[in-house]
Every structure is written in C-alpha cells, then in structure tokens.
Design a protein around this nucleic acid. Sequence first.
DNA 1: CTGAAAGCGCTTACAG
DNA 2: CTGAAAGCGCTTACAG
Lengths: 335, 335
Amino acid sequence: MNKKITRAQVAEAAGVSESTVSRALNNSPKISASVRKKVQEMASRMGYFPNRQAVLLTSDKTFRLGLVVRAFHNFSPFTRAYFPRLLDGVIQEAEKHGYSVTIIMDKINDTYKDLNLMVRSREVDGLIFSVTAFEDPRFPKLLENNIPLVLVNNSFEGINCVNCNPYPGMLDAIKHLKSLGHRKIGYIAGDQHYWDGQTRLSAFNEMTNDFDSAMVVTGNFSKTSGYSATEKLFREDEDITAIMTASDRQAMGVLSYCNERGIDVPGELSLIGFDNLGPARDMTPGLTTIQNPVTLLGSDAVSLLLERIEKKEKWKWIERQSQFIMRHSTAKAYK
Amino acid sequence: MNKKITRAQVAEAAGVSESTVSRALNNSPKISASVRKKVQEMASRMGYFPNRQAVLLTSDKTFRLGLVVRAFHNFSPFTRAYFPRLLDGVIQEAEKHGYSVTIIMDKINDTYKDLNLMVRSREVDGLIFSVTAFEDPRFPKLLENNIPLVLVNNSFEGINCVNCNPYPGMLDAIKHLKSLGHRKIGYIAGDQHYWDGQTRLSAFNEMTNDFDSAMVVTGNFSKTSGYSATEKLFREDEDITAIMTASDRQAMGVLSYCNERGIDVPGELSLIGFDNLGPARDMTPGLTTIQNPVTLLGSDAVSLLLERIEKKEKWKWIERQSQFIMRHSTAKAYK
DNA sequence: CTGAAAGCGCTTACAG
DNA sequence: CTGAAAGCGCTTACAG
C-alpha cells in the first residue's frame, strides 16, 4: 500500500554503501560532510523513512512504556477523572524522553502472565501501574522476574512507587474545620484495599483526637458510597456539622443526599472532599477539597521508570504533597 | 537485565531446528503433535518469549494504532471528558482485534511530517484523529500519501469518518421545549471551525423557525464561553425562557451565570446541553441534554481503520445518532 | 572516512 | 513432517 523505499535503494541511488547511508542518516561523526549531505538529500527526495521495527530490533529496546489500567466491569476505565489525569502526566513526560505510551487493559483474571509477557516479548520496556489493590498477587512475581515497573498510589517493598502524601492537605483542612467551630465531624473513608484509602483514613484518625467526636464510616471511593455513608453517619449522630471524604466523588454523594433531604451545604453541613480532579470545581457549591497531584504523579512515574530502565536504578520512592483547596462548601458550624 | 532466551536456544535444548520451533510455537498444522508438545513444553520451561519486534519485522505490520490527540496550550488533553471517553471506545475495540493503541500528541505546529512519519516508519499501522478543525491542512497531504486514517467528529472527502448526527436528539429536545410552552429561546453555538459546531448550529436553525424568536450567539465549547454568551443573550432579549447549548460545558457556564444572578433553573430558565459526558449527570440540577455517543464513535473509528488497513477498503462513513436525555433542568415556561 | 560482512531474532518458501 | 538457507531492514565492529 505504501511504496516501500529501503535503505538499500537509497544506497544505490546515492552511489554509496548501506553502511554509509546508515551513518549519514544517524549523523555519525565519522563521515564526511559532503557525503552526509548527499545521502540525506537523496533519502528525503526518495521519501525514505527508516523502518523503526528494524532499528529497534538491533537496539533491543522498544522506547515504549505500558500504562496498565484496570478495567472495571461496571464502568469504562477512563470514565473517572483519575485515569485521564494520570495519563496526561505520563504522556507528557514520556514524550520528553522519546518514549511513546501504550495503554494496557488490565483484565481481572490472570494477567500476571500477560503483563510479564508484555515486557519479555519486547512489547514495551516497562510498566506503570495505576490504581492497584494493596496486596496485588502479581507484584512479587513481576519483581522476581525483574520487570521494570512502577506503582502509582500504592506501595510495595522493592518496587518503585510514587505517591501522594495526604497529611499536609488534610492537616490544613482539619485546622480549617476547627477554626470554623466544628466539634463533631464525620469521615467517609475509601476502600481499605487501596493505599490511598488506608493512608487517608490513618491521617484522619491521627489528626482528630481533640474533636468532641470524629466518627468514621468506611466505603469505597464512589458517589453511591458517599451517599449511603452519609445516611449512616447521620443515623449515628445527627449533630455532625462537617463531613470529610476520601474522594470528591464520595463528596458528590454526600451532596446529593443533602439536596434530597433539604440539608443546606455549607449552611448546615460543611463538606470537604479529596482529589480536586474534574468535578470539584464544577459542583454547586464549589467543593472545598484536597488536591491530589495526579498528573504530577504520572510524570514522576515515568521518570522513575526511565531511571530504572536506562540507568538500572533500583527501588526509589517519590512522594508528592497534598494541598488544601478552599472553595465554598465549608462554613461556620451552626451549632 | 532480563535473561534473554532465544529461539535458537530452545531449538538446541529440544533437539530440533529453529524452523521447527517456530512452527511448533505458531501452531502450524504441518507438524507432528508430539514434536509440537515437546517444543512447547521446553519453551515454557525455559521461560522463552518470542521477540515481538522480530516477529513484526517479518510481517511488515505493527498491530499498533495511533490515536492523535490535540495538545491545547491551556489545558492538558485528557482534562475534558471527551478524550477519555473516546479513548475507552478506541481501546476496547482495538484490543478485540489484537491491536494496541498508542497516544500521539498533536503539537500545534508542523506535524504533517511527524504524523506521516509515524506510519511510514512502521511506528503504527494507522491513525485516528480526535477533534480536529474543519479544514486541517494536513489531511490532503496525508491522503495523498495514502496513510490509513480515520477522522472522528469531522468530515473530509476521501477520508473515513465517524460522526454523531445531532438531528434526532435536537429534534426531540426542541419538541420538548415546545411542549413546555417556550416561545423565545436562545442557542449558544460551538466553535464553527469544527464539524460538530457547524452541524449542531444548522440543526438548531432548521428546527426553530416556528418559535417567536430563536436567537443565536456563537462561542466555543467551553464553560466560560457559555457564561459570557448567556450574558449576551439576556442583554439582547431578557424574555428568553430557554437556552440550548452546543456542549455540556457551555451549559455549566450558563448555570453558573444563573447562580450568580439568582435566576432559577429550571424555574425561570430551561436549559439543555449537548454531549452527556461526565458532568451532565452530576450537575445540580441534573442537566437535560443530548447524548453524543463518543465511546461508540471510538470503537467505530477502530473498525473503520482496521477495514482500511486489513482489507484495503476505501472511504466509508459511519454515522451514529444523538439521543435526547431528560433530566431536571427544563420546566414549563413561566411566561 | 568508507565498505563488506556478520548479526539482531524471527519466518517461510524450497527441498527432502 | 523437518531442516538448511535466504530474507525482513537495519547497525556496527572490523578492515582498510
């Protein structure tokens, strides 16, 4: 379909050997300027493009990175704001270094073998895992096979990880709540199978000893989970004046619960989310939340992976800080 | 780093020739069952993985598809719901056919050459373009070079395209507005450099002859554009009781304008968006809108591209229908 | 500075 | 059914 011009044809047309063509096109230093110019001109005149597959075969690299994305059964992976944001960071950083990125769907079953195969078969040079459960059984195997990989928002001994530290943002959030006079607050925790779910919950627990009460309900990160957790929270103690959540989507659930019951936010209930991805800014009222620098984590993940691939560095860890973002969903405690 | 087992080593260990290993592993019919089994066992015992680069070199294919995504200067490409949704469809369909997808950032300048190069250099087998301007100067060149490509939400003679037809959804939307008694309505159009901007506007114009007035303000698809267009609309005619927009994001802008001025939606103003991607459902009130089946367009794009690549089919067109989605942002005209 | 030759890891007619 | 050989399109010591 595409006319195929090969190195050999260019060589013949330019009256030099293939080796010379190769060197001329790769700007090898040991070649005369005139020959280089002649060859380059001929190549571009003939519309010659080096076959990347062949080039890569000799180099034993792929210059491709695999971003492993979990395929959930109930929604498409990129439906939630998290993945696209991560992808942004991953792609931008990868491009900077001449790598391209390939999305790999993570099917629920098996997959260790598939993923191992991806890099062993030189499909990609390494793997970046987005959201994964805390003790994923594939990690030890992958590690053992010496597969270059990095985990985002997770932690595993011996594997490169990039993470968001929830403490700074949550500390400011809680100070803010205190300054507004809140004494009884609730927390809607995220899925405890995930690193983020765990660390955010611990942070909350550690920071709220001096409240009159700080009740916790555990959910997953979804909007529906936020909705039902709110119900539970109010059933336990209807005097709660503020709720923090482990995700903005949970906060949306809180908000829709409140809308239905006529509970005014922030008048009667102050609400603080977590993530500050898409929805937070667009909600009404604008959601006060804690920034999770996901895009940054994405580019960090690439840096780390590249260090591992190119410089053989081992086990490093990058931690980024969360940050409190004030909008309009918090106000003075009304009681 | 990774121990490299090659076909040759497997051949030796199994006591057969390389050709035989090749055939055994590829399940060639002309090989004895016993040999096949022996070789396959040996291969897996040795942890042998065929080198994909080498395989592909012989086949002159890449089994990779490039999704070209425009990099805007003011926001990361995947920030808006459109791209991730498209990506979902593209990936799912590509996987079904054994292709992987690579994201290609579309830099503003040049790029024809780069994109041409991507497929000429066997980086990918073909290209899918997401949102592109109506008369993109690169299309004729790419076409001339016989590059397999398909356009999503655009149209260009000779190039495969997949599109969303706005008429059915908008027709129902407008009927709905009529049935609610609205006589003076406004339309906030999208960027007219884009196919979607144009067709949606024409649809509106064609369908609204029998209203008392149907005023149009042209913007781009953004939230801020929706905001300022609303201002303009009301300045022209404060009796407007309904607004339709060319995107949900514009509708968000309308809503935030109304929130600021204390205009009740849907009490005093009915609002209908377009797209039904992420934000529409989560807004307060839930946005009545028109579904743009973006994920479907993504998988259609892959089907079309694959037909082109594998069966050499030319110039086909897929059109999907929009659909009216009723939520809570519309009500009886109050005057 | 340049060319002939071997090699990257696979596949596939061609013989047998 | 199986093997020896040529080939895919490039790169890179090795000579000169």
